[in-house]
Design a protein around this nucleic acid. Structure first.
Length: 347
DNA sequence: AACACGCTCAACCGCGCAAGT
DNA sequence: AACTTGCGCGGTTGAGCGTGT
């Protein structure tokens, strides 16, 4: 269909001048934007409405937070992206003062490279295949990952030379393992270990596994998986199943907003009714407004969370979650030259 | 000092959707 | 029902800047 507003009249393009900014700010703060297509005319700008809207939303809005992203924000982006994929607008809703454009740029310029540097597919958050690694690592940082078999111990070795690739806070998510077979898992020698932590249940992601197996077991397992409301996909250290490993191999807690409160848990149960699986935002709003008249903790704003999309977004990723009925130990080996090695072994 | 290269980020483009006619 | 209009979103581009050689 395209846009007609931009092609109809002569409009200026490119960077905005301070004068244009001032005109737009003055107009919107006085009258509000109303219909964007009429803003340029009313504000005396030679721009199309779309350009005005973009300029206001991404740059001039008074509630924008400027400056670089914090570590906390970065982790939030990664966690939400893992669930929603490239839904930048949705992700930005979890970051007050940030725009979708900002989040998108940050992802593409920074986080994406960190993923690749650690041998992870930025799209699926799973480990890249060796083929993908070869094609993704033309230069920059050298990534070497080993999937030992049949010991099931693995390592992700990241070597960082690029100053922009700050590896102080590795965000390696739970790495995929071969199908659990505790009988064949041998611990790696511990003589070289500096520290370790224990995960009592393990999340196993197998890109080749069929989602339907899991879904058949429980019609709402996906919801539970996404919201961390089930013990099935959780661990003692990572109840949500969507945490991240910090430098001490502890699960990041920044995603507590995805931990349902008692009230949210009730709502989740309501939403898990079969006929409500495909609940739309408006319906969620209705639920919010009518449920006992109580004000809902919107730290995780369900109206912003597209439950339907969770299913559609996760399935193509081939994410699969199951319990590894054994005890796995994460061991971080601090290597020289900034290399970090993460190993998971069964005990 | 000059050039090449890489990175960041503001802005643009095209598409899909919804509401209005 | 078909078309138009407007908005919002995700992908892409390119100017400007910093850094390395």
């Amino acid at each position: 269909m395209g846009h007609h507003c931009c092609s109809k009249q002569k409009v200026k393009r490119g960077l905005w001048s301070p004068e244009e900014d001032e005109k737009l700010i003055r107009h919107i703060t006085t009258y509000g934007h109303g219909c964007w297509s009429s803003v340029p005319k009313l504000a005396g700008l030679q721009r199309c409405g779309k350009s005005c809207r973009l300029r206001w939303i991404n740059y001039l809005r008074p509630d924008l937070k400027r400056g670089s992203f914090t570590e906390q924000e970065e982790r939030t982006i990664i966690d939400v992206h893992r669930i929603l994929g490239n839904r930048w607008a949705q992700i930005a809703k979890h970051l007050p003062g940030r725009t979708d454009n900002e989040v998108k740029n940050f992802w593409n310029s920074c986080i994406k490279k960190k993923f690749i540097a650690q041998g992870l597919d930025p799209n699926t958050h799973n480990l890249l295949s060796s083929h993908q690694i070869n094609s993704n690592n033309n230069n920059a940082s050298k990534v070497c990952h080993h999937i030992h078999q049949p010991t099931s111990a693995f390592s992700v070795i990241s070597q960082t030379k690029d100053a922009s690739m700050d590896m102080k806070t590795p965000f390696i998510t739970l790495p995929p393992l071969p199908p659990p077979d505790t009988s064949s898992i041998n611990p790696i020698p511990t003589s070289s270990l500096h520290e370790n932590s224990t995960i009592t249940a393990f999340e196993w992601q197998n890109p080749n596994s069929a989602w339907t197996d899991l879904r058949d077991q429980s019609s709402h397992s996906l919801m539970e998986l996404a919201m961390g409301s089930t013990p099935v996909a959780s661990s003692a250290l990572n109840p949500s199943g969507f945490g991240i490993l910090d430098e001490n191999c502890m699960w990041g807690t920044n995603f507590e907003s995805f931990e349902p409160t008692g009230q949210e848990e009730m709502e989740l149960q309501q939403k898990q009714q079969p006929q409500q699986e495909k609940i739309c935002e408006g319906e969620v709003d209705k639920v919010n407004k009518t449920s006992s008249g109580q004000k809902i903790d919107n730290s995780f704003d369900s109206s912003n969370f597209d439950f339907e999309f969770v299913e559609s977004a996760l399935m193509p990723c081939g994410m699969y979650c199951s319990v590894f009925a054994g005890t796995l130990q994460y061991q971080k080996l601090q290597m020289g030259g900034g290399r970090l090695v993460y190993d998971a072994i069964a005990s």
